[in-house]
């Protein structure tokens, strides 16, 4: 017997928008602890869809912790705890009915140290996320995706002839762009970057920054950086984190990047962006 249209049960409507479209990310009173030590105190920040938001501030002010809370990497550390909400397109990623893996798939991350899978080829590195999230694609679709993601990450021209070589054999800057391509392959709606250029030389840094600018619009980018010039170059909005002696970190000031650099409201921001401390 063949199934007639009346036999089939329609799938429930999908309420979340199609993957791959930039979404707004909003943190609401996020606090974080490592054991008894509180490192973030009620941080609220809205990262607008399709824009680049930079998190700046001196070392140890909690900006990396904040970034890791945005895609649930914080909880990988055994003693870590947190409070507050993180809303992706209006939905709390920490809600009990949300799947952890789903949140991380939609909110990708690029780390400080390039971490490609060294035993896999360049090609396999890019498609690793598909395999890990159970997405099956035909060969042609895969080839197309690999080219698309590597082009987006500004790496295609350099590796098009060595897609089968191990990802670990690339230079540091190429590895980092490979990691960006790998993150893009699962069509994230937000891309978090934790000091992505701190291990790279100036040329590679420039390539990555160009990539970031090109990505804006398609994904929401949140970037942690120690480099003020980099924040000024790549970001639309900026948030200045500070942890004063013995107190947990928090946001001192946030707003449009150009305004923050030229006309900061808080004297501490002025001191920091002008390089007087940090």
């Amino acid at each position: 017997m063949t199934a007639s249209p009346s036999d089939t049960i329609p799938l429930p409507p999908v309420d979340s928008p199609a993957p791959g479209t930039a979404a707004e990310l909003e943190a609401r009173s996020v606090s974080a602890w490592f054991g008894d030590h509180k490192v973030l105190d009620r941080v609220s920040l809205t990262m607008p869809a399709g824009r680049v938001t930079a998190l700046i501030g001196p070392s140890g002010c909690g900006k990396s912790t904040f970034l890791r809370i945005l895609n649930r990497m914080h909880e990988l550390i055994p003693s870590a705890a947190l409070a507050g909400e993180v809303l992706l397109g209006g939905q709390d990623i920490y809600a009990p009915e949300r799947r952890l893996t789903d949140a991380r798939k939609q909110i990708g991350m690029v780390f400080q140290k390039p971490n490609p899978f060294p035993a896999m080829s360049v090609y396999e590195n890019v498609t690793a996320g598909l395999k890990l999230t159970g997405v099956r694609l035909g060969r042609d679709a895969k080839d197309e995706l690999v080219e698309h993601c590597l082009t987006k990450a500004g790496l295609w021209n350099e590796v098009r002839d060595r897609l089968r070589q191990p990802g670990g054999a690339l230079s540091g800057g190429q590895q980092q762009r490979l990691c960006i391509a790998r993150s893009l392959a699962v069509s994230p709606r937000v891309l978090l970057m934790d000091e992505p250029c701190s291990a790279l030389d100036p040329t590679s840094t420039r390539r990555v920054e160009e990539t970031i600018k090109e990505l804006a619009g398609e994904v929401t980018v949140v970037i942690v950086t120690h480099n003020m010039q980099q924040a000024a170059r790549v970001s639309d909005r900026c948030a200045f984190f500070l942890a004063e002696q013995g107190t947990p970190g928090g946001i001192v000031e946030h707003g449009i990047t150009s305004a923050m650099f030229t006309n900061p409201a808080d004297p501490r921001t002025a001191d920091y962006v002008n390089g007087r401390f940090g």
Binding site: T101, D102, R104, G108, F111, N115, L132, T133
Partner: peptide, 13 residues
């Protein structure tokens, strides 16, 4: 640990 986190960040179980 870096590679582990890289896999998790892609949405791996």
């Amino acid at each position: 640990a870096g590679e582990r986190e890289g896999a998790y960040a892609l949405g791996a179980t």
